[in-house]
Amino acid sequence: MPTHDKPEEHSGLSRRGFLKTVGAGTVAGGLVRESGGAATVAAQGPEVAGPAAIPLKLSINGNTHSLNVEPRVTLLDALRNYLDLTGSKKVCDRGTCGACTVLLDGKPVYSCTLLAVEAQGHKITTIEGLGSPEELSAMQSAFVEHDAQQCGFCTPGFVVACTAFVKDHPNATLEEVRAGLGGNLCRCGTYHGITEAVLQVAKGGA
């Protein structure tokens, strides 16, 4: 079981951020911590974790990974920056474009908008878990066959979203495919190839 414990790039509060926080006057006394404070458990109750790094266990593509991250680290950042699973892409980073799509218990979600701590206890599937260059999944093969990419940056998210869509809609029509994939964007505009790929896999009953 690999253990990952990288130093947090933005540890603690900057002086400026600290002054701003105090100046805002809305932060309850006792919640403001000094930079780099080691306390992980607050006085208010045993269930409170952070803001310093906390140990997490994530089940990703069938493997359990242990890592230490602050509660503010998103699943996408945990995958890319702590676990070297860089297939999920960071594009909009605001739950709009779909390039970061992963499956949580088989359902597509935006990993940029899900805190890593909240992904504990769920089965996470990333693009790395769907196939390999040697052994492409049916959806990956269909993408190749139908030229369903240009720059390729949106492709991992699309393949993950399409895989989940076909599983739920094995006999999808073109209209259903278009509506069902509205959560992913391709700025190159390869939608035609993508819908063709999805329709092919849907017909194949994969």
Binding site: T21, A42, I54, E70, P71
Partner: peptide
């Protein structure tokens, strides 16, 4: 994102 405490009761 600013850091924060997290609880999942």
């Amino acid at each position: 994102m600013k850091s924060f405490e997290y609880a999942a009761p």
